[in-house]
Design a protein around this nucleic acid. Structure first.
Lengths: 216, 216
DNA sequence: GTCTATACTACGATAGAC
DNA sequence: GTCTATCGTAGTATAGAC
């Protein structure tokens, strides 16, 4: 039992290190030392640095899956939801994403994922397959429902731009903080950003709905 | 003269390496070898790996500055432009950003900058100070003009979300390509994305204009 | 100024003691 | 299973030849 906890601890430290310094920048020596164990235990359990990295990706996928489950699973029981309900769920998902992206609690996860997005390795497929793909497809479906669109390609582009507003909070954290003249992303700043993103989301979805009805 | 060209070549190779592998992942030996010179010349010219990295940041700042100059400098002669002209310039700047973010030509630049955004070092200040800060403040100003807003804080948040739609094209390139079921970002895909981003931009700016007139 | 040779450090992997 | 010791490799930095 204590062993299992130690493995979790090692993985969490590994994620923090990989997130901060990248795959090459992080050192197995440092990770092992921080976890209070010998470096060779990484070799034993994960086969090496690369194995540890992939295990970290799986761990993140599982954690994020758990975190997002409440707002995603809901869609499974969607026999036929209306446009208003679909839009509410879009807002729920984006809010959950904002919370995850902005919170310091999951800073390491988001940084790890962001690094993979920019320079994908095998780890990206695991994370994408774990939940991200499902979540994005769910968003596409919801966009189609709430706008009345049948064109999933257009819906996908809408999802890209909608999530872009959220991702920028982490991907360009340094710029966002400079622009907002802050040192940290406190709860108030997150709330302000969230309300503006929600309003933008409505504006974008309304535009898509209107274009469908009146393709002028 | 040939020496200067060699330094430029070395810097460009360094940028590509740093962009692809990060500061720790890139190797001075590899960079020097690819540039056809000895590793110690890096020490001589830049003082070491860190110095080369900062020089690469300055080089990028200068290049991006040159690239964006046409759409930014325009604002300098803005005695009093109208709401329509301001909005046109916002679209111009975003289009230029999309082109820079999406094109393979400047892939290394954007990756380098993205890495700095996620984990800022001294290099970030150089890039931000070089042009990015000025460009973002220009965008804020234009948003205020085109929406009639006096609240620059709101304008800054609008700029964050507007640029977020663009940045996601590079920051989450892997996800975007998966969603769009493509292997590469060809010109047609870029054009489609650009037109949707432009429409979203209008929707967001219209929303801000309307809220100002009717803050219900 | 630029390259060669070398010193020094840190990394990842592995073998073997316990 | 876990730790210690060690090996080979790769990195930066430096000194010195040219």
């Amino acid at each position: 039992m204590a062993r299992i906890m130690l493995q979790h601890r090692l993985l969490e430290i590994a994620i923090a290190e990989f997130a901060a310094k990248g795959l090459e920048g992080a050192s197995t020596r440092g990770i092992a030392a921080a976890a209070g164990t010998a470096m060779s235990s990484i070799t034993y359990h994960y086969g090496g640095k690369e194995g540890l990295y992939l295990a970290a990706a799986d761990y993140i996928a599982a954690q994020v899956c758990q975190e997002m489950a409440p707002v995603i699973d809901e869609i499974d029981l969607s026999g036929d939801i209306g446009a208003i309900e679909a839009r509410r769920r879009i807002h729920d998902i984006l809010l959950q994403m904002i919370d995850t992206m902005a919170s310091d609690r999951s800073e390491a996860w988001s940084l790890f994922i962001m690094r993979e997005q920019m320079a994908p390795t095998e780890a990206f497929d695991r994370i994408y397959g774990g939940l991200m793909g499902k979540m994005l497809e769910t968003l596409c479906e919801l966009v189609c429902i709430t706008t009345g669109l049948n064109d999933r390609d257009t819906a996908r582009i809408a999802v890209i731009t909608l999530t872009g507003q959220v991702l920028v909070l982490r991907a360009s954290r340094a710029t966002v903080l400079k622009l907002m003249k802050r040192d940290t992303m406190d709860a108030e700043a997150v709330a302000t950003l969230a309300s503006h993103i929600a309003a933008n989301t409505d504006a974008i979805l309304d535009r898509l709905s209107m274009e469908r009805q009146d393709p002028a």
